[in-house]
């Protein structure tokens, strides 16, 4: 195992954390979008309180993935910038509006009408961002991305990335975020002992969970038809993760139903994690299949080792700090204390 493999693992870990933690944040906004007409003020407050202290940190994971890609696999970074510029740009617009809307809603202190506007923007951007980011991921996974050359037609730059799989993964990631958020928010509601909210979120978790199960099967079929290379990877290497994802998914539903909320959260996160690792492992060693592999795109080994040292050193500071943040604001004990 070379330094490039280690770095890929680090990148996959960061991507997973982004998908789970950032995903739950996005999901909260998606719920606001889909329930805009029915949600009461109290429900909205519940959402905002849950994301408040952690959303900023949750979103740095994405920056982190980008930085590793840029430094460790610069050729892949450059190729993605060229081929996927449109979905990435749209993701970026989503990130800007989401972050802006959240902060102006929380701190802007404007009149009611203006708050509503920011809320609406927050909700739409929370839905759009995972849509486009997910689509970008699907475009990569499809194995059909053509890296534009000197004499590519402008149209290839614009719509070349769109494929059935890309469209599917776009919507799939919206569903994934919504599901995570529903389970996380069930737990938060349960911890502070709010029965009304707990019931609502429990119902939502169960229904989205079932839908996600159906979608996941559809996804496997889709991969089999649309991305034969990836499907082969799943058959030879990725299959245990499919099983793990299945088990975790079903497990999370059962635990939500029984209101074992912490376990439900773990299982739901596990399901998402398994999907991402299943993808990564099945696609290995390609970063952008079929043409760009890790070995081709990587920086020299010396640089990669240096990065790993930096990441290890940084991790020594980062992980305890992150743990402290979550302990402070997500620990059950404290939540109870504040609620009472």
């Amino acid at each position: 195992m070379g330094p490039d493999d280690l770095l890929l693992i680090v990148m996959l870990i960061a991507l997973t954390l982004y998908a789970v933690l950032g995903g739950a944040d996005f999901g909260a906004g998606i719920w606001e979008f889909t329930t805009a007409l029915q949600a009461t003020d109290r429900e909205r407050q519940h959402i905002y309180k849950a994301i408040g202290p952690v959303w900023e940190a949750n979103h740095v994971w994405l920056v982190f993935v980008l930085m590793i890609l840029m430094n460790g696999f610069p050729k892949a970074f450059a190729a993605l910038g060229l081929t996927l510029w449109l979905p990435l740009l749209l993701t970026l617009v989503g990130i800007i509006f989401r972050g802006g809307a959240y902060i102006f809603r929380s701190y802007g202190g404007g009149p009611k009408r203006e708050l509503l506007l920011w809320e609406a923007i927050f909700a739409v951007a929370s839905t759009g961002t995972p849509l486009f980011l997910g689509a970008a991921a699907g475009a990569i996974a499809s194995g059909k991305l053509k890296i534009p050359t000197e004499n590519s037609l402008p149209s290839e730059f614009v719509i070349g990335w769109i494929s059935p799989l890309a469209v599917f993964t776009g919507f799939y990631s919206i569903g994934m975020c919504a599901y995570l958020a529903a389970v996380f928010l069930t737990r938060e509601a349960h911890v502070i002992g709010d029965e009304h909210l707990t019931t609502i979120w429990r119902q939502r978790s169960l229904s989205t969970g079932l839908w996600m199960g159906v979608l996941s099967f559809g996804g496997l079929v889709m991969v089999a038809i649309e991305a034969p290379h990836l499907a082969e990877g799943f058959v030879t290497r990725g299959w245990p993760l499919v099983i793990i994802s299945l088990v975790c998914g079903i497990g999370s539903l059962i635990e939500v139903w029984r209101l074992n909320c912490s376990r439900a959260v773990i299982a739901a996160s596990g399901a998402v994690t398994a999907v991402i690792w299943g993808w990564g492992i099945s696609q290995y060693p390609a970063i952008i299949p079929p043409s760009i592999t890790a070995a081709q795109a990587k920086s020299p080994d010396g640089v990669l080792w240096m990065m790993l040292i930096v990441i290890l050193t940084g991790g020594v500071f980062l992980l305890p700090a992150l743990g402290y943040l979550f302990m402070l604001f997500k620990g059950e004990q404290l939540d109870r204390k504040v609620a009472s």
């Binding site: 590793i68 840029m70 430094n71 610069p74 920086s299 640089v303 240096m306």
Partner: peptide, 17 residues
């Protein structure tokens, strides 16, 4: 970035932390 990322990526990675 494709050409020079390997050379100057490191401070960006550190910056990430």
């Amino acid at each position: 970035m494709g050409r020079w990322g390997a050379v100057i990526g490191l401070p960006f990675t550190m910056e990430g932390f």
